[in-house]
Structure formats: structure tokens, C-alpha cells
Simulated scan of single mutants.
Amino acid sequence: MATEPPLRRGNLLPARVLVTAWSLLVLIAVLAWVLTVGQARHMGVEPGTMGMGVPLFLLLWLAMMAAMMLPSVAPVAITWARGIGRRSTGVTRAARMASFVAGYLLVWTTFGLLAYAALAATGDLVHDHPDAGRWIGFTAFLLAGLQQLGPLKNVCLRHCRSPLSQLMRYAGFRHWARDFRVGAHHGLYCVGCCWGLMIVFIPLGVMNIAAMAGVAAVIFAEKLWRLGPVFSTAVGIVFLALAGLAPFHDWLLPGLTPPGAPMPMH
């Protein structure tokens, strides 16, 4: 059964409110991009965590997630606000949407702890054994490709593209912190959908702005484009092809090349 993007006609909220909500989320995403790009210019692309401790890494990871994820999660957040709009003032509705986004980003920040551990482990391994980077890259691309083509991806992507039935179930949550919990639940689905896309930052580099932009575009297309599921499958096939090339082409692995090591020509 075909899925459809979550935001459709027949809005319960006035157009002015929807435009304001979209504008606010886009503004936050733009500011997050500015922060991330500015920091990346000073750090470059290196293996591992680049000397960052957990607090600083999580702060930058949060900015990355806001930059990459908010454009695609905005329709879901606004859809949730539409459902509660009849019983909410404009101020209350904005606070509830902020709570939804906070819960969503908290889940991705928690996932950042796993990303930090993976980057720290692979960074230490590459510094001790530079040739291991090729096989780490192979493994990362392979896992990403298999995840894109696997059943968990399909289940979670289906939810992200058509969340209305799940949002109706969330309406039964008790009122306390309900919007925060809804955002966190949706964030868990999003992690299940996109964790494979995140592990490609191990070979490509966690502060690789080009890679960030590419992954953000993939996420946006998967969730909102009419042909998103087909596109998701194509991306998985590309990752599998990159897995086959990674052991033989170091230029595919800027995030696994130690500082000072010669980088082969493209």
C-alpha cells in the first residue's frame, strides 16, 4: 500500500499559523547549519572524535541533528499541532510544538553517545593500524546498505511518511509531558529509519559538511518525496557499491585517513 507524505490539505490550523511554524523550524535549522559549518571550518575532517570530549561532541551533534533533521520532521510536528489546535491558543500551541521537537532531539542526542563511542573506537584503531581504515569503511558502508534494504527501514520509514495513525494513538497519552513523549517516540522511529545513514559519517568524517548535506538531502527525500521508498532502495544499492570499492580507494574514506597521511588523487 503506497504511503504519502504526512502534511496534506484540509489543515485545521490557519495558514498564518502554519507558515509561522514552518518559518520557525526552518530558522532553527539554518542557525544550526551556520553553527556547524563554522565549527567544521576550524576542525577539518579527521578520524575519531578529533580530540573532543563527550560534552562538546554532543553539543555539536545536537546542532548537526537540528540542521539535518528539522526540515524533514517539521511536517510531523505541525501535523501533531494541527490535531491539538482546536483546544490550544497560539502560544500554547507553539510551546507544545517546542516540546515535541525537544523530545525528538533528545533521542538523537542520546544516539550521539553511541556515535561518540563508535568514532572513538575506530579512531584509535586507525591511528594504531592505518590499513584498518579500509575495512572499517567497508563495514560501515555495508551496514548502511543492508539497513537501507532491510525490513526495519521499511517499517520506520512508513511511519515517518504517514504518521497520522500513530499520532491518533498518542492522543491517548496522559497530558503530563505528552508532547515531549510524542516527539521522543517519533524520534525513536526516526533513529530506526536513519541509523544506517549516520554510520557513513565514520568513513566520510563526522564534520564533513558535504557528507552532511548529502545525508540531509537523502533523509528529506525519503520522508517527503512521493518516490521516497524507491529512492531509499537506490541509496542502499549505492552504499553496497561503495562497500565494494572502499578497500581499494582511500579517497572514499576521508574520515579514516590519519592526519599527515598521503591522500590518493580522486
Rank of each mutant, 00 (worst) to 15 (best):
T3E: 04
E4H: 10
P5M: 11
R8E: 11
R9S: 12
L13Q: 05
P14W: 04
L18C: 06
L18F: 08
A21N: 08
V30P: 03
V30I: 15
L31R: 06
W33M: 07
W33L: 09
L35D: 03
L35E: 06
L35F: 07
T36K: 02
V37L: 14
Q39L: 15
A40G: 04
G44E: 12
V45P: 01
P47S: 09
G48H: 04
T49D: 12
V54D: 14
V54H: 13
M64D: 02
M68W: 04
M68N: 01
P71V: 09
P71S: 08
S72V: 00
V73G: 00
A77E: 07
T79C: 04
A81P: 00
G83R: 14
I84M: 09
G85S: 13
G85M: 02
R87V: 10
R87K: 11
S88R: 14
T89H: 01
T89E: 01
G90M: 12
V91L: 04
V91C: 00
T92K: 03
R93K: 03
A102P: 01
G103I: 03
G103C: 02
L105Q: 01
W108R: 01
T109F: 00
T110N: 00
Y116Q: 02
A118P: 09
A118L: 15
L119I: 05
L119K: 06
A120G: 09
T122G: 11
V126P: 09
H127Y: 04
D128V: 10
D131M: 10
W135A: 08
W135V: 10
G137R: 00
A140M: 14
A140L: 06
F141R: 02
A144I: 00
L146R: 00
G150M: 00
L152R: 11
K153A: 14
K153T: 11
V155F: 09
V155M: 03
L157S: 10
L157R: 08
R161Q: 10
S165E: 14
Q166N: 04
Y170S: 11
Y170D: 14
G172E: 08
H175P: 10
H175K: 12
H175N: 11
W176N: 12
A177C: 13
A177D: 09
H185P: 00
H186R: 02
Y189I: 10
C190F: 06
G192N: 05
C193I: 12
M198E: 01
I199F: 03
P203Y: 02
G205A: 01
V206Y: 15
N208L: 04
I209F: 02
A210K: 10
A211F: 12
M212V: 10
G214N: 03
A216Q: 05
A217T: 12
L224T: 05
R226A: 13
R226C: 05
G228Q: 05
G228C: 04
V230R: 11
F231R: 11
T233N: 01
T233L: 09
I237D: 06
A241P: 07
A243I: 08
G244M: 13
L245V: 00
D250N: 09
L252E: 11
G255I: 08
L256Y: 05
T257D: 03
T257M: 13
G260L: 15
P262C: 09
